[in-house]
């Protein structure tokens, strides 16, 4: 069989990473970019999980690694969100807010 059980999830992870990168490049609002980065991360985790799958169960090393990764992703996303809010709060007063700021040439 060409595609084994875990491959379905691993390939889904690869596609998620690709979709996330595309969104990261074309979406300009920082909150949307944070979201895209999270989807890329989730895709990488899913690749690890899919490749660590066997009929007997899942690879404990991959699982432990992914749990660590999830927690760090959350910590950094929250920090990123706080930075975006702070940037908006103390941005130039005469400049348009974030969403419109990049409309210019």
């Amino acid at each position: 069989m060409l595609v084994e059980g875990g491959h379905v999830f691993a390939v889904t992870g690869a596609v998620l990473a690709g979709l996330g990168f595309y969104s990261f490049l074309v979406k300009r609002h920082p909150i949307r970019q944070l979201l895209a980065a999270n989807v890329v991360g989730a895709g990488v985790f899913l690749m690890l999980g899919g490749l660590g799958r066997s009929p007997g169960g899942a690879d404990p090393f991959a699982q432990a690694l992914v749990i660590t990764g999830i927690v760090i992703a959350v910590a950094l996303s929250a920090l990123g969100a706080a930075m975006v809010v702070r940037l908006a709060a103390c941005g130039d007063k005469d400049e348009a807010p974030l969403g419109e700021k990049r409309e210019g040439p």
Binding site: G6, A10, G13, G18, G50, G52, S54, P60, F61
Partner: peptide, 20 residues
Amino acid sequence: GFTVMLAGVVLTIPPGDRLS
């Protein structure tokens, strides 16, 4: 291109629970 490459690499690795 990135996705295709990634998926291609992933498909060359047989899934397995080698570390348990």
